Simulated scan of single mutants.
Amino acid sequence: MKESKVESYLHCTKCKEETPHIIIYINNEIKSVECETCQQKQEIELNIIKEFYKELYNRISTKPSRITQEYKQDLNHFILSIPKRVIRKPYSAVKYINSSRKIIKNYKKK
């Protein structure tokens, strides 16, 4: 899962003018919008677990086509990169799961 914060100028209904806002996205879905001037925050209901499973399904289901495309582009590079991938993949999987777990834990409390 990926959490990202974007700063933007939006019209605030409380301030009645254009003010800086922080928009929080989780997997390209808006989670919240907060005015930096008056701290009015709009939360958007987002099923974090559903987003996690949707992302996981997408990663798993597209893997065969991505691998096929990769070896068709450059077979030598693909074959030479397999040993590195075998070593790195468990580490990257654990890193992904831990970062997703932190995001899920953070937003399940709220």
Rank of each mutant, 00 (worst) to 15 (best):
M1N: 06
E3Y: 06
V6H: 14
V6P: 05
Y9P: 05
C12I: 07
T13G: 11
C15E: 09
E17V: 08
T19L: 11
H21W: 01
I22D: 02
I23P: 10
I23E: 01
I24S: 09
I24C: 09
I26Y: 01
V33T: 13
C35W: 03
E36W: 02
T37V: 15
Q39H: 05
Q40D: 07
I44D: 03
N47P: 02
N47L: 02
N47H: 03
I48P: 07
I48K: 05
I49K: 11
K50F: 04
E51T: 12
E51V: 07
K54I: 07
E55V: 08
E55C: 06
E55N: 11
E55P: 01
L56C: 02
Y57M: 07
Y57I: 12
I60R: 07
K63R: 06
P64A: 11
I67A: 13
T68L: 15
K72F: 04
L75H: 06
I79K: 05
S81H: 12
I82Q: 01
P83A: 12
K84F: 08
K84P: 01
R85A: 09
K89D: 06
V94Y: 09
N98P: 05
N98F: 11
S99V: 05
S100T: 08
S100N: 06
R101G: 02
R101D: 09
I104W: 03
N106T: 14
N106M: 09
K108R: 14
K110T: 14
